[in-house]
Amino acid sequence: MRVVVERVSKTYTDRGGRNVVALSQVDLAVEPEEFVALLGPSGCGKSTLLNIIGGLLPASSGRVYFEGEPREGRPMAATVFQEFALFPWRTARANVEFGLEELGVSGFERAERTRHYLDMTGLAGFESKYPHQLSGGMRQRVGIARALAVEPAVLLLDEPFSALDAQTRTLMMEELLGTWARTRQSILYVTHNIQEAVFMADRVIVLSRRPGEVLDTVPIRLPRPRGEHQQGDPAFIQASDRIWGLIKSQAQAVLLEGDAVPERG
């Protein structure tokens, strides 16, 4: 399905009663089977926008809609969170089953789908482990399997690998691309890492610092399947430089304000 974000704005009221504009008139679309990265400096409203698309946060104005033919028993969107958000009292299998239970999927089908997505994410043999018995990478694989198991029209990922070490992150990125190649679900992937965005996505939507507005959309013309060797490819470097050019002044402004800057590599 296609996701359309139309003139979406979000204003928060802080504790002092002041209005803080997090997003301003954001327009974007994610096409079916497309992998789109949403990139911007910390605090630019990337996660806010993702939560609005996922229905976890209401927009102050504008609208978000899904366009296409829905499949019965299949939710529009599922989110993979930065901090895994697993239920600590449930095993890996029970965590993956959770969404299916909520959808009312029957016991046999639930078990089959859970096994399929646990296998796909490399968790076979770890089904009975609790989150505290798993490594960070494995926990996030459970989070991804849980989101994939409900077979959503669009998968939303909110900096899913930022809590992982660099090596695990690289491996997980390749794994996610492999999973996406098999499922071909539309993906909206939030990150503040330019290389990660270029490595993963078909298009990178660059947001400005607060209030978040779309600065530009950068198409990534790298062939798939992608691998680490492509990081020296002229198309990779060109796209990274273009994004950095868009974001550099924003990052400097954020730095002066005392926030984190986007990672260049």
Partner: peptide, 13 residues
């Protein structure tokens, strides 16, 4: 005709 599904606020409850 393409069907459109407006995203609801799922946390309203």
């Amino acid at each position: 005709a393409v069907e459109r599904f407006i995203v609801d606020d799922r946390t309203a409850f």
